[in-house]
Each structure stands twice: as C-alpha cells, then as structure tokens.
Simulated scan of single mutants.
Amino acid sequence: MTALDPALHDVYTQISTATITTILLKKGLRNVWLRGAKPLVDARRRRVGPAFTLRFVPAREDLATPASWSSPTSTRAAIEEMPEGVITVVDAMGVQDAGIFGDILCARMHKRGVEALVTDGVLRDLEGVEASGLPVWCDGIAAPSSVTGLTFVGWQDPIACGGVAVFPNDLIVADRDGAVVVPQALIREVADLGLEQERLEAWIMREVGHGAKLPGLYPPNEETLARYRTETGDG
C-alpha cells in the first residue's frame, strides 16, 4: 500500500470534489463521482486518502451465513489489513437492504486510523456508527446484516463502487458533495491544477461580490485572466 505524501494530502484538503470533477472532465474523465456515496456521519471536514478496496457480490446461501464472519476471507480480516490513513471503499452493488458494516466494525476501523468509509451500499447500527468516530459516506441505513443480501469476496482488487472503477491506491476525496476518485497516475497533476482552480474561483467570487457581471468573468476570458494574474502576483 502506497502512503500519500503529507504535502499532497494537505493540498487536497483545500480542493473540493466539485473542482476535482471539473479538472478531470477537462482531461476526458467523466465518470469519477461515486453514485450513492452520500455524506452520513462526520462529513463536515473534507477527507482524503488512498483507496483500500473491498468487494461484495450477490448473496449465495451456502456462503452468505453468519459463520462466514469468522472466515479468513471476511470483512473482519480485511479491516485488520487496513493501514492508517486509507479511505475504505466498498463495492456493495448499491444493495439497499443489507447493512455491510455496523458499530463494532466501524469502531475498529476508526481505531486503526482509517480516514473514512465510502460505499454505494448501506450501514446498520446508526447510533453506534455515529458514536464510533469514523466518517461515513453511504447510501443509507438498513437493520439487516450484510449476509441477508451480499457475500463478501475479498479486498484490494479493482472494484466498481457507485458505477465508478476504483483501483487500490487511487485517491479518494470526500466532502459534502459526495466522493470522487482521482486515478493514481493523475494525483499530483490534479493537485496542482485543482489548487490553482480554487484560487482563481475564490478571486472570481470576490469579483461577484463587488458587482462584476458574469460574461467574461466566469469562465474568465483572457482579459480577466490577465487582471487576475496582475492582482494576485501570478503574472
């Protein structure tokens, strides 16, 4: 597992998921926002970390049993492999009636230093999950356990979460707009472009506050960009 450079982590905490989707759109990547991964618990602060992936498939009665929770291939075993600082990304196929994790598993992830949990599925034990300290993005809450509708099959393989391909060590950024994936090969470039985009848009917002009209300002034309560079010392 490749740890994220602390300087890059700090940069990404300043870049919104909305900005990241725009940057990636300009590079031809349209499908990077994880559908169903809505902010549920402690989502006020932006969370950033490399993806640690888990995968469920549809339940099969001989495999999806309470006994499977003690299997070497179990969510419990996967949690013990999670390094500090990762964002756990779980492919739950969008299943709405089987909670993939509850309070105890979330508490253990938080204890291990997991940055956040992101899934297109649902959780259970909401009160305990809220108390666990683990930030969560998911598609809701359901009382039944995971084996009611899903079979866990492994971790640290490519997955599809919310209709988006996620590979281990891709970067995940999650905020109040949801969660996005930045391909590993683009992490540094998107950081540079995203930080500059945030600076530019902050300047544009100040111009809007001063009564500036939008045409030529947003998106900025060459005259506006020249003025921005002069006023911010980037020219």
Rank of each mutant, 00 (worst) to 15 (best):
V89A: 11
L134R: 03
T53I: 07
G133Q: 00
E130M: 13
G149N: 10
C161R: 04
H110Y: 11
F52I: 10
V180G: 09
A92Y: 01
V180Y: 02
P50N: 10
D97N: 14
A98S: 14
A116H: 12
E130C: 11
R60S: 09
W137S: 06
I100P: 01
V86S: 10
S70E: 09
V89H: 05
C106F: 01
V129M: 03
E130A: 15
G149W: 02
T119N: 06
P135G: 07
V114A: 12
R124Y: 01
E127I: 12
T65Y: 07
S146T: 01
V89T: 10
A116G: 12
S71G: 15
M82Q: 03
G133V: 03
C106V: 05
A67C: 04
V86Q: 11
V164L: 09
L126A: 12
C138R: 02
D125K: 03
L134V: 04
V129H: 01
T75K: 07
V122R: 02
F101T: 09
A116W: 07
I87G: 04
L150G: 06
V164D: 03
A165V: 13
D139P: 00
G99N: 03
S71C: 11
Q156I: 05
A77S: 14
A77Q: 12
G94S: 08
R45Q: 09
R46S: 14
L134F: 02
A107D: 06
P72C: 12
L134Y: 04
C161D: 02
D62P: 00
V147H: 14
T88D: 04
T119K: 01
I79W: 00
E61Y: 09
F152P: 07
G128V: 06
A64D: 09
A107V: 06
A59G: 09
I87F: 05
I104L: 14
K111R: 13
P144M: 13
V90M: 08
K111T: 06
S71T: 13
A98T: 03
V114G: 03
I159L: 07
G154S: 09
P58H: 10
S68F: 07
